[in-house]
């Protein structure tokens, strides 16, 4: 067996069958080649976030005990904000943006008349959400370091952690979007995203949730926050493998459903 086929065998089928997905990402580059505002806005968002916690929380809330050591509250919350920002970006790109192209602009109808497949569309659109997300994460990382909110070299792993978190949210978001019938349905997105943001061990540790801890652990954002926090604080535990597996599984399931639904909607 050649090395190439060996590699493809361990890749989920959805990725194995979308060899032209990068064309969809290329399209997004063409669309955004003049929109520098997007990059600029991506820079200010983390800066505002982090200033607010440095100035506000940082002075009001003292150090807290986390993973057997004492960390400042700002150090505790900053990784959670980085993860939440990755979630928000992925959700926006995979829901509103995709819905517009799917139902209004009828973009994908045109794409599917070429050798491109519905799998290429799904993987490519999520790929673009991640490309943009990674850019933001790098900027966020730079701000974290500049503001002295991290002291471990492992902080660079926060970027791939956000990438994985973004992949999970973008995949599930796109799958959900294929079921939406009108713009009103997007109210549900906020209804889900806001509690996730507030209750995913973002602002206080899992132990504070007491007997409700198991509910928190269902949240994909919880796993993303845990990963980014581990990277920022230099914590290595077996729990990381669980977080990675959970998010990877969500990504594959979401992607597969999204591609199948695009096919059902447009190739009937």
């Amino acid at each position: 067996m050649s090395q190439e086929t060996l590699v493809w065998r361990v890749v989920p089928p959805i990725l194995r069958h979308s060899r032209r997905a990068h064309r969809m990402i290329e399209r997004s580059f063409y669309v955004n080649k003049l929109s520098w505002m997007i990059v600029v806005s991506g820079f200010f968002e983390p800066l505002f976030y982090l200033f607010s916690i440095r100035i506000g929380f940082g002075s009001l809330v003292g150090d807290i005990e986390f993973a057997g050591r004492s960390v400042s509250y700002a150090q505790f919350v900053a990784p959670a904000l980085m993860a939440s920002s990755a979630m928000n970006g992925a959700v926006y790109d995979s829901t509103m943006n995709v819905y517009f192209k799917l139902r209004h602009a009828r973009l994908y109808d045109g794409v599917l008349a070429t050798p491109m497949s519905s799998k290429d569309v799904a993987v490519g659109e999520i790929g673009w959400a991640l490309t943009r997300g990674t850019l933001y994460s790098i900027v966020f990382l730079g701000c974290l370091i500049a503001l002295g909110l991290t002291d471990s070299w492992t902080v660079v792993l926060a970027v791939p952690a956000c990438l994985l978190l973004g992949a999970a949210f973008a995949s599930v978001g796109m799958a959900a979007t294929t079921y939406m019938r009108s713009w009103e349905d997007f109210d549900w997105v906020q209804t889900i995203v806001l509690p996730l943001f507030l209750f995913s061990a973002t602002f206080y540790p899992l132990s504070s949730y007491g007997v409700w801890g198991w509910v928190v652990q269902i949240s994909p954002l919880y796993h993303g926050v845990a990963l980014v926090r581990a990277a920022c604080l230099g914590i290595a535990t077996w729990g990381i493998a669980v977080h990675v597996a959970y998010l990877a599984a969500l990504t594959v399931v979401g992607l597969t459903i999204a591609a199948r639904r695009v096919d059902t909607l447009l190739c009937k």
Partner: peptide, 27 residues
């Protein structure tokens, strides 16, 4: 080549880029 009943041109791209990007879908 396909000309569908309803135009589904890429409204986010210029006229020229519509053609270039579409060509890229064909590699």
């Amino acid at each position: 080549g396909v000309v569908p009943q309803q135009d589904n041109l890429d409204s986010e791209l210029t006229v020229f880029d519509n053609l270039v990007v579409y060509g890229r879908y064909f590699d």
